[in-house]
Design a binder for these strands. Structure first.
Lengths: 212, 212
DNA sequence: TTCATGGAAGCTGAATACAGTTGAATCGAA
DNA sequence: TTCGATTCAACTGTATTCAGCTTCCATGAA
C-alpha cells in the first residue's frame, strides 16, 4: 500500500472498494474498524476517512454508533443502477466533442477486436469492457459528470460480478459496442448514445441468473 | 449545532456546505482545520471527516500536505453544471411514476402560486424555487439518482447565489414551471422533462451578468 | 424453559498527541 | 541590494487515547 504523495485514505478507499465489489467484504457485513485497520496496516483515522467517503458514495452505509456496513444486495436497486449508469454514460457521450470521438475510433475498434479474440478464447471480458467504456468517455470534458460516473459504477459492479451473464451476454455486449462505433462513424451521436443506454439496460436483463 | 443521534460530521458538513455556497468560505480560500474546528466547537477529527466528504463531492479540493481548499469559481464549470443538474432532474422526473406526479400536482400548483405572489412583492424566490424542485422530484424512487442530485446541486448553488438573475429570470423560471405542470397534467412526461431541462439550461444564460 | 437483568468486553465517535511537511521570515554572503 | 540557505512556527496527516454506547453472555426469577 501507500502511493507516493497521496494521503493514506486514497489507497485505503480504493482497496476497500475492491473488497466490496468482489465480495471479500460481503453484503450486509459490518466493518470492524480495529480489525480492518490492523489488516491494512494503518490507523483508524485514515481508515475512517476512507469509510466516510465510501459511505457518501453509497458503497457503505453509516449507522450511528454502529459504524459502517456493506449495503445488502438488492436486485431492485441493481435494476435501477444499470439504467442510471447507462443514462450517465449516454450523457457523457452526447457531451463529447464529435471530432474527439472520431479521434478515439481507431483505438476503440482495436480494443473491440481484442475483446472478440478474448471472447473466442473463452476469457473474461469484464476488465476489457470497463476499459472500453472508459476509453469511449475519455474525451468528455464535463469533469463533474465523469466524477459521478466513476463514483457510481462500483455500486453496480458489485452486481455485475455476481451475475456474470456468461459468453452470451458478452456476445450481445460486443455487438452493441459495434453499433455504437458505427453510429459514431456515421456522426450520429444520438444513435450512439441510444445504443450505449441500451448496452447498460441489457445488463440488468441478466440480473438474477447465473450467480457464480 | 449537534443533531440528536447523528454523528458530528453530518452537521459540520452541512454547515460548511452552507458557508461555501453563500461565500462565507470564499472561492480559492484554504481551510484552516484548527481555526475552523475551534470556531465550530468540535475537534479536528469530525471536521476532517466532513471535509473529506465534501471534497469527494467536488465542493472542496484536497491538496496533499496542504489540506483543503474551496475550488476557484470557474464560469466554464458553471456552464457545464447547469445542464448537468438539468439532465439529472429530468431523468428523475422521467423515472417518477406518473400517478405519483399527478398526486403532487395540487401542492406544486399551490407553491407556484405562492411564488407568483412573492415575485409580485419583490421577494427572494431562491429558497421557494429549491423547495419546488425538491417537491417535484420527491416521488422519484431511484435513491441513487436522488443522492447524485442532492450532492451535485450545492456545486451549482454557489454560482446561483452569485449570478442572481433578478426578477426577469424568476419570471421566466416561473413560466417554465407552469409549462412543466401543464405537461404533467397532460400526462406528457417527456415534454415535462424537456421543459425541466430547459429550466436549468436557462439558468446558465444568466451567468456572468448581475453579480451582486 | 423462557424471559428479564446486570455487567463486562468490545466497538464506535470524538478528542488529543505526535510526526513530518510546508512556507515564510531571518540571516548571511556575494 | 539581492539571492540563497537556514531555521522555526504553523499546519496537515496519522496515531493514540478516552468516553460513551452496544452487544452479548451469564445469572436468576417466573
Amino acid at each position: 500500500m501507500s502511493q507516493s504523495g497521496a494521503p493514506l485514505r486514497r489507497d485505503v478507499a480504493e482497496h476497500i472498494t475492491g473488497r466490496i465489489v468482489d465480495g471479500r467484504l460481503p453484503a450486509a457485513a459490518r466493518v470492524n474498524e480495529v480489525h480492518l485497520a490492523a489488516e491494512l496496516g494503518v490507523s483508524r483515522t485514515p481508515l475512517r476517512e476512507a469509510l466516510v467517503e465510501l459511505a457518501d458514495r453509497g458503497l457503505l452505509v453509516a449507522e450511528p454508533n454502529r459504524g459502517f456496513r456493506v449495503p445488502p444486495l438488492d436486485l431492485d436497486e441493481a435494476r435501477k443502477l444499470y439504467p442510471l449508469v447507462g443514462e450517465l454514460e449516454a450523457l457523457a457521450l452526447r457531451w463529447t466533442a464529435p471530432q474527439d470521438l472520431l479521434g478515439l475510433l481507431d483505438r476503440l475498434e482495436q480494443q473491440a477486436e481484442q475483446m472478440e479474440a478474448v471472447l473466442e478464447g473463452g476469457g473474461d471480458l469484464s476488465v476489457l469492457d470497463d476499459n472500453w467504456h472508459g476509453l469511449l468517455l475519455s474525451a468528455c470534458a464535463n469533469a463533474h459528470l465523469m466524477r459521478l460516473i466513476v463514483q457510481t459504477k462500483p455500486l453496480l459492479k458489485r452486481y455485475d460480478v455476481l451475475y456474470f451473464g456468461g459468453p452470451e451476454r458478452a456476445r450481445r455486449s460486443l455487438d452493441e459496442h459495434r453499433r455504437i462505433l458505427a453510429a459514431i462513424r456515421a456522426q450520429d451521436l444520438n444513435e450512439a448514445a441510444r445504443q450505449l443506454t441500451q448496452n447498460w439496460a441489457n445488463g440488468a436483463a441478466y440480473l438474477g441468473c447465473r450467480p457464480r
